[in-house]
Design a protein around this nucleic acid. Structure first.
Lengths: 213, 213
DNA sequence: CCCTGTGAACCCCTTCACAGCT
DNA sequence: AGCTGTGAAGGGGTTCACAGGG
């Protein structure tokens, strides 16, 4: 399955869950496509890449589709997540309500600040980064979120990999090279903003063709 | 210039600035590529798409490249940013130090909560969303960041567009249809996590071919 | 020589057009 | 008739391979 499809599945599922809550049982591709902002063809292609679920008369069964996508994304089982760094961003992530319903549990947090180590943040014990190996195993962590200072980031990543972490979500605007068999996703707010700045400034220079009024 | 190139330029510039701080004057494509995690060819292609800056002997002039990229991204002039929603995420964004050095100033914040409206957050006055029109003009806002509740999000977006906002960074996991001439970038943490969950679970099933030990 | 810059090939993803089903 | 599923075409972006220059 195409990796881009995977990214969209997550969006489809969220929309489908809302529809399910509104007691919608069936939906057509053009309706769901409208909601999530893709073309109906795109949506059908995505879904057809892992099976046939639609019926000509009623469209797609909402509940069934949610189940299939959930299994496919691997979010039917619980993922234990480690958070690295309990600064502003880390605390915000700890309070985010969107993880639990999708099978993610931030089980443990790490920091280097001696003031924070040993304390409990939103119910999670904060460990020192140096004790990572044992703690990762103890909580059977397989995903980590980086929300720490950029110093020694590669080292942290390598330690995580050694501890069995296979996927990392990186909020730190520093690029690290992924250890073997470890997937890294970057979330780079500044880069996104700068992209927007570019789009805004070029739009000023070359306004999109529209009929003069 | 390709849009993907734009996203990478921002990353290049950040790395170049670090190099500049370390008094590095020239750098070869393979060195910078290594730092930011792209192929040297990719990097050269990106840079060559808007000019020729490298010299065979010394590589690229760091300072010059920073200047060119900055102008190109449109971050040489200041962008006034409006933040919508002063919850956990909003406050975290307000305290983020990465905006100012890249030409972004969060000038004003909006909320619907009467407790928050009128208060000052990190030096920014909080206005009610309904007074958006006048406030946007007053501060000459051209970029907005959505960090609010998902209710009526499309309405908020449309209001922003009417107020002259041309680019929106959306942290809210709800898809909205962009008004004409408005660019929207999504930051979807859950979707990224679910993508990672997928990668982890498929890797378990079909481990990448490696020699048995 | 080893670097940069770049046409060409390649690859992936989206879109089109339509066949098949209900 | 309107829907889904899908081979085929099209487009964009990355990689390759090499020409050109200090």
């Amino acid at each position: 399955m195409a990796i881009q499809t995977v990214e969209r599945l997550s969006i489809y599922r969220r929309a489908l869950e809302e529809l399910h809550n509104e007691a919608v049982e069936y939906i057509f591709s053009h309706e769901l496509a409208q909601i999530v902002g893709v073309t109906p063809t795109q949506l059908r292609k995505d879904l057809s890449s892992f099976g046939s679920f639609g019926s000509g008369a009623k469209g797609y069964n909402v509940r069934e589709l949610i189940g299939v996508i959930t299994r496919l994304l691997g979010t039917d089982r619980l993922h234990n997540v480690a958070l690295i760094g309990v600064g502003n961003l880390g605390k915000t992530l700890l309070s985010y309500r969107g993880f639990a319903p999708r099978g993610f549990r931030v089980s443990v947090v790490f920091d280097v600040d001696p003031v924070k180590v040993g304390r409990i943040f939103a119910g999670r014990r904060c460990y020192h980064i140096d004790s990572m190996d044992e703690v990762l195993a103890k909580y059977s962590i397989d995903i980590a979120i980086l929300a720490c200072a950029p110093d020694n980031l590669q080292e942290v990543v390598d330690q995580l990999a050694e501890g069995g972490v296979r996927a990392i979500l990186n909020f730190v605007p520093t690029r690290v090279t992924p250890p073997p068999n470890v997937h890294i996703e970057e979330i780079d707010v500044s880069a996104k903003l700068e992209k927007l700045a570019y789009l805004v400034s070029t739009q000023e220079l070359c306004p999109p063709d529209e009929p003069e009024d």
